[in-house]
Design a protein around this nucleic acid. Structure first.
Lengths: 260, 260
DNA sequence: TAAGAAAGTAACCAGTTAGTGCGTTAAATG
DNA sequence: CATTTAACGCACTAACTGGTTACTTTCTTA
């Protein structure tokens, strides 16, 4: 279905990349498809008597997924500029030509990886279901989640850093990101409002500033864990250090919002 | 004097870079020299009657400084991996060969640039003279300084990010950084202690955690200003937005330390 | 089952990039 | 003034890098 978007590449002049508009469509389709990936139809059994699902020799979706996975790691490790297309194709066990077939260019691949990364974190956040929790608990849970997510998905941070080095030129083109972001901001807005109503939080706090601060105190710690460990002469990634920091972060946010 | 270290390059096998130890010495010497740069002896006037200081055609220090300046900008703009040695030499109006003459390699150049950047910010911090200010004011002034410094020196942030992408391999080799860092931590430690003694701050706050948090809330905002402006659908670098954030940051830190 | 479409491959290319060999010229030194 | 030392520049290269051409193999469908 969505494959139709890629056909242009083959028939048109090879120098003609997809324009920005096409790219958005491609991404949207890919992301939507990704969420359905698990129900992806396996080869329809021509012989119903044969119970063994023969593994596809050629599987566009699987190849694409392998490329995306390898690319995420490479981009996270070396940044957009430092990543090597050859390394990605090698790690993905896919021919380099496939990258250009599916993603058009190195930058197109980076954009998809980045978009997927954002969609992943925003989706995970929505699953937290904070709107039914007590405000203080909801906030604590969000801080905890943010911390854990960065800890378990360090690639996210590196990808975002790389994107900012490029002045967000890839994210600018993305449409879905904005949809997800709005839901995210309104989530914190809601917690804040409920906390004020319950007399627990002070009023007048900008949800965007709070959002930024919640991200900041975890993000900074993780992204600067290497230089930080040298500057402060302590292993910031030691188990104790991590636990201590998380406690400190929760404390910081609760003190920030609490009505005196 | 320190030039002697580089001679090895000329006589020895060209493939033999300086070892880590030598590098440290070179850096130390360079940084110390940099602080004396202003009193650098100008060509001793052979003709005392001649009042015009003839501009040196060959000036090692000046060339080195131009390279360092151009390199800082290039590295900050494109990261260590994305920066191009040719571009640096061109911008510095120095021959590329000079970069290898003075800094040994692209990485050697990066290390020097990074070290200088750290020394610069730590030096500026020390000049704040916070030890004679009232604790609350001292802390506010530090938050304000950190904010302004990141705002006016965005290269610092990009350099640090790039260094963390490389797992701090360059900073690890640096000795001076540790000396400067200790002074920096003890500065905040001192403010905290005085605040507790005055009954203004609560006790038991880890100065390192506070330090990290002060940096984090400003650093994150700046480093993610591009993606942030998209995600939050507002121009984070607009004048109002900057002022609002600074106010929010000061508030965050004061609430964090204050005795209820 | 024939034929078209899609998936996949290997070899290649043109431009780039960090790094050098070697020669030249200005300045310091005695 | 002569000689040494340090600053500087040109031209070059080997390895790399994103991207492509031309082709084969497998799958789908009329």
């Amino acid at each position: 279905m969505s494959q139709v978007f890629f056909d242009a590449e083959k028939h048109g002049n090879a120098r003609n990349r997809f324009d920005a508009g096409d790219m958005v469509c491609v991404r949207l389709a890919q992301v939507l498809r990704a969420s359905l990936a698990k129900d992806r139809p396996v080869t329809p059994p021509t012989e119903p008597a044969e119970p063994v699902v023969k593994p596809r020799v050629r599987d566009a979706e699987a190849t694409k997924a392998r490329i995306l996975d390898a690319a995420k790691k490479e981009f996270a490790k070396n940044g957009m500029g430092g990543a090597r297309v050859d390394v990605i194709s090698e790690k993905a066990k896919a021919n380099k030509r496939m990258i250009y077939h599916y993603f058009g260019s190195k930058e197109g691949l980076f954009q998809t990886v980045l978009e997927n990364a954002y969609v992943d974190i925003r989706t995970a956040e929505q699953k937290l279901n904070l709107d039914h929790l007590e405000p203080k608990l909801a906030l604590e849970r969000l801080v905890r989640f943010t911390w854990d997510y960065y800890l378990k998905n360090p690639e996210f941070i590196t990808l975002v850093n790389s994107e900012n080095l490029h002045r967000a030129k890839h994210l600018k083109k993305s449409e879905i990101i904005k949809v997800y972001s709005r839901k995210f901001v309104s989530m914190v807005e809601d917690i804040l409002a409920r906390g004020v109503a319950a007399g627990q939080f002070r009023s007048g706090i900008d949800p965007v500033q709070l959002n930024i601060t919640i991200a900041a105190i975890s993000y900074y710690y993780m992204t600067n864990r290497f230089t930080g460990s040298i500057v402060f002469e302590r292993d910031l990634m030691a188990k104790d250090a991590l636990e201590e920091r998380l406690r400190f972060n929760i404390d910081t946010i609760l003190r920030l919002v609490s009505a005196e």
